[in-house]
């Protein structure tokens, strides 16, 4: 029966990912650390993603402001536009959109790179050369995604807010000081911290899923393509699941 088969496959996959994550903690986090490779990955994963995150963040802030304005005008609360846009960007839209863009760019890249290394036996060659692939390839990439996504989200949020400021100024004249005063007045630590903390989990999910899919790539170009694709799909779904759990958690702590 297809339903039973799918359910079994789901649990098999979940078990394999859990086992892979366990190996990351048991093998990958042991000294001696691959600091040079970690720095290289932080540069590739973090710095090189900044233009894309910045551009999408800017457009997101601009479009969000332009979409919200007519509704707020109809209720006569146009003056609340910076507050609403600021809260929406910092608490939800910024972290989630940045994480999804990040999953698309970095998740697929890690899945394809490691998948290609797997099918061409480069990972075996690395092991033969006295290198633990979990430590050298997986740990460095997962730590880099976990560290870089929160930083990219903060930068992306800042660029988004600037986009929102431009959006506000399309229909009215508002000084930059007034706009950001209003935004920062309405945002507290209880808005920023949960949002930043959840991006740490988003980053970890993107890294571990990309590496898992790459390491379990089947032979051939189709296998590598499929690894890259499923890394993005699964990481994106996980981002929403983590987001849902994070909202429930922050609600239960009374932070919303």
């Amino acid at each position: 029966m297809p339903l039973l088969t799918n359910t079994r496959e789901f649990f098999d996959e979940t078990g394999s990912i859990t086992k892979f994550t366990g190996r990351f903690f048991s093998h990958g986090m042991k000294p001696k650390y691959e600091l040079n490779e970690l720095m290289a990955q932080c540069y590739i994963i973090g710095y090189k993603s900044l233009p894309l995150v910045g551009l999408t963040g800017f457009i997101m802030g601009l479009v969000l402001t332009m979409q919200l304005r007519p509704s707020l005008v109809s209720y006569g609360v146009e003056s609340q536009l910076p507050v609403m846009v600021g809260i929406a960007i910092v608490r939800e839209i910024g972290p989630v959109i940045t994480a999804l863009i990040f999953a698309g760019k970095i998740g697929s890249s890690i899945g394809a790179e490691l998948g290609s290394m797997k099918v061409t036996e480069q990972i075996d060659a690395m092991e033969v050369s006295g290198t633990n692939p979990t430590k050298y390839l997986v740990a460095t990439r997962v730590i880099a995604t976990t560290l870089m996504l929160p930083i990219l989200t903060i930068l992306g949020d800042a660029i988004s807010l600037f986009g929102a400021y431009i959006g506000v100024n399309i229909n009215s004249v508002t000084s930059i000081r007034f706009f950001f005063n209003q935004v920062f007045h309405s945002i507290g630590y209880s808005d920023v911290m949960p949002a930043v903390i959840k991006t740490i989990f988003f980053g970890f999910a993107v890294g571990i899923i990309g590496c898992y899919k790459g390491f379990n790539s089947t032979k051939g170009t189709r296998g590598v393509g499929s690894s890259a694709n499923s890394a993005v799909v699964l990481a994106s779904v996980l981002i929403f699941v983590i987001d849902l759990l994070a909202v429930q958690f922050t609600n239960s702590l009374g932070l919303n």
Binding site: S116, T120, E121, M126
Partner: peptide, 24 residues
């Protein structure tokens, strides 16, 4: 171990490929 498909690291130069096992 000589791999069937050579398994050279395609992101590294020939020198880096040879240095890799030495340095590890």
């Amino acid at each position: 171990f000589l791999f069937q498909g050579n398994a050279l690291y395609d992101s590294m130069t020939v020198r880096e490929n040879l240095e890799f096992p030495l340095r590890r």
